[in-house]
């Protein structure tokens, strides 16, 4: 098998951090908070590495789009087993559409046979980059994957859908986006972190790719959600059911 797997990853505010809306409403405070690899992307890295370990792929290349500091998540991905990394350097925050344009250029250059990525980033919660990228490449997509099998030039993807699982069979190349149940990512062990420091990391200036990275959305404001108001006490289960039916209209 000579397939190359491209795994796009994103550096995000660590999932343990309680985010705080900036006092001026311009966004979320990200200064000085712990940053990590997006958890869904860790799952994607793990899956790609497993595909290589099974012999279904020959190389795992991770890529991120971001500032110089974003190379720490590339090192983590390489400590988990990715073979090499590409940092597409920019100081701007890009939207999924723009990121997809960048990734399309990288996927084309790398002649990737499979793109495996997280279904969404836990910062902007967009859940869109994989789908946009697949559309732009003209590749099929297997989103929200809970299992994948590569065989005979195709990839079979079990997808998490509302109320169950759907299986689709895609021609390769394809884009797969990882959901939580796909696997449990391994630890980046200390020996592997040390070895990852010596793996190749290429930096590509975003302008050199010549792709459209303009924003189509303007952030007008960012606010904290309203706190929940204390509700009412009801006296009986019957009254509760009545209110859920007529007032809340939820059952």
């Amino acid at each position: 098998m000579t397939m190359k797997v491209l795994v796009p990853v994103k550096r995000v505010v660590d999932y343990n951090v309680k985010v705080r809306v900036a006092a001026d409403g311009s966004g979320v405070e990200t200064q000085g908070v712990k940053m990590s690899m997006n958890p869904f992307d860790e799952i994607a890295v793990e899956e790609a590495v497993r595909l290589r370990e099974k012999g279904a792929a020959k190389e795992v290349v991770v890529v991120t789009v971001g500032a110089q500091a974003a190379q720490d998540v590339l090192r983590t991905a390489m400590a988990m087993g990715a073979d090499r990394a590409i940092l597409v350097r920019t100081d701007d925050t890009l939207e999924p559409r723009a990121v997809a344009n960048v990734l399309k250029a990288i996927a084309t250059r790398e002649e990737a046979g499979l793109i495996c990525m997280g279904k969404q980033a836990i910062d902007d919660d967009m859940n869109a980059t994989g789908q946009i990228l697949a559309a732009k490449l003209g590749w099929p997509q297997g989103t929200f994957a809970s299992a994948v099998t590569v065989a005979d030039g195709r990839i079979e993807v079990a997808r998490e859908i509302d109320g169950g699982t759907e299986v689709v069979s895609l021609t390769l190349p394809a884009v797969v986006t990882a959901d939580l149940r796909l696997n449990e990512p391994r630890y980046a062990s200390l020996p592997n972190i040390m070895k990852a420091r010596k793996k190749p990391l290429e930096t590509v200036e975003i302008d050199s790719l010549g792709v459209d990275t303009a924003s189509r959305l303007t952030v007008v404001s960012v606010a904290e959600p309203a706190e929940r108001k204390e509700g009412v006490k009801v006296n009986s289960a019957a009254e509760l059911v009545e209110k859920l039916k007529t007032e809340a209209k939820v059952i």
Partner: peptide, 16 residues
């Protein structure tokens, strides 16, 4: 739309 798992609400304007 919510961002950060609903810990913040972003108001965005689209030019598309």
């Amino acid at each position: 739309r919510p961002i950060y798992a609903g810990n913040a609400l972003a108001t965005v304007r689209s030019s598309d």
